[in-house]
């Protein structure tokens, strides 16, 4: 498989996941900001910008601004609209590899983006976020149903899971940064669609500790950090035909494996007491994996740079 194609597939996975997760996070938080009398809008909005990595230095810090910058901004590839556009752009570059149904799904979504502002104005932001979730689910379903489980699939799934780790870590940090102004971690469970599973798992024991434990460590819930890391790890292992005899073959595997074991073999209490550094570490892990994967699979040689006038 061409490196360029592999890279596009990896980024389709990442961008679609990013669009979905951002939509989920914004949906729940915006609703929370409005419906909860104890949430201070400015603090909550600042913290949202902070964890989503948006350097916003000037006000106003309103929920309308969140929708504009993190939801509807075409030029920002980490906004919902921007991520969907970027996913489609990547798919355009590998139309011959992905199934036509996947391409159609992303393309139709892209064309739907032109009317989202009107949707938001007429029906409210929730309708928009819901539509995004639906489209991402269709994409995931088509990918699952029409793509053969070859190398390309591994790259796409790898991208999806790396992004998922990053997004869940950011989600967990919204509480950290808000300094308790967001009333409960239970909100975060709703963001990741984990609320009902969590309730069934922990029954009456509804507290923050369990919520954090669930989102970080649950083995069975597909959006937990642990589950996403494990999925990424197995993709990376499959991508190396010859594992060799000692350790693992690639840097990416080492980084992901270390992060996974760091979660797996530390008690939940220990993790939670040390939550800040753990989450920062996870974010760093994602960037490092990203680099390592790029180096290993996408650019085995560094780009050649021609400069004029230097020939002598």
């Amino acid at each position: 498989m061409l490196s360029r194609i592999a890279e596009s597939l990896y980024w389709i996975g990442r961008y679609v996941e990013r669009a979905e997760d951002t939509a989920r996070i914004l949906d729940v938080h915006l609703q929370r900001i409005l419906a909860d009398p104890w949430t201070n809008e400015e603090t909550a909005v600042r913290s949202l910008f902070g964890v989503m990595g948006m350097a916003v230095t000037e006000g106003p810090y309103t929920s309308g601004r969140v929708v504009d910058l993190l939801g509807l901004d075409q030029r920002n590839p980490s906004s919902v609209v921007g991520a969907l556009a970027a996913a489609r752009e990547n798919a355009r570059g590998c139309r011959e590899i992905i199934s036509s149904e996947m391409w159609e799904c992303l393309n139709a979504t892209y064309h739907g983006l032109s009317s989202v502002r009107r949707t938001v104005e007429q029906q409210g932001v929730h309708a928009f976020f819901r539509w995004v979730r639906d489209r991402c689910a269709v994409m995931a379903g088509l990918t699952d149903a029409t793509m053969s489980r070859d190398e390309g699939w591994k790259f796409l799934v790898l991208g999806r899971n790396v992004e998922r780790v990053d997004m869940t870590a950011r989600l967990l940090r919204t509480h950290e940064l808000a300094g308790g102004s967001i009333p409960s971690w239970l909100t975060l469970l709703r963001s990741s669609g984990a609320w009902e599973t969590f309730l069934r798992t922990y029954r009456g024991a509804l507290d923050d500790r369990h919520a954090a434990e669930f989102l970080l460590l649950d083995r069975l819930f597909p959006r937990s950090v642990f589950a996403a890391l494990s999925a990424a790890e197995s993709c990376l292992a499959d991508l190396e035909p010859d594992p060799g005899r000692a350790g693992v073959a690639t840097d990416a595997q080492r980084i992901v494996g270390r992060a996974r074991t760091g979660l797996e073999f530390r008690g939940a209490d220990e993790l939670i007491d040390d939550l800040g550094p753990v989450l920062t570490g996870l974010e760093r892990t994602c960037s490092q994996v990203n680099e390592a994967v790029s180096r290993r699979y996408f650019r085995q040689t560094s780009a050649v740079l021609w400069t004029s006038g230097a020939v002598a």
Partner: peptide, 9 residues
């Protein structure tokens, strides 16, 4: 504050 999400190619 967290870093920006990784940019694509």
């Amino acid at each position: 504050a967290a870093g920006r999400p990784d940019p694509g190619p």
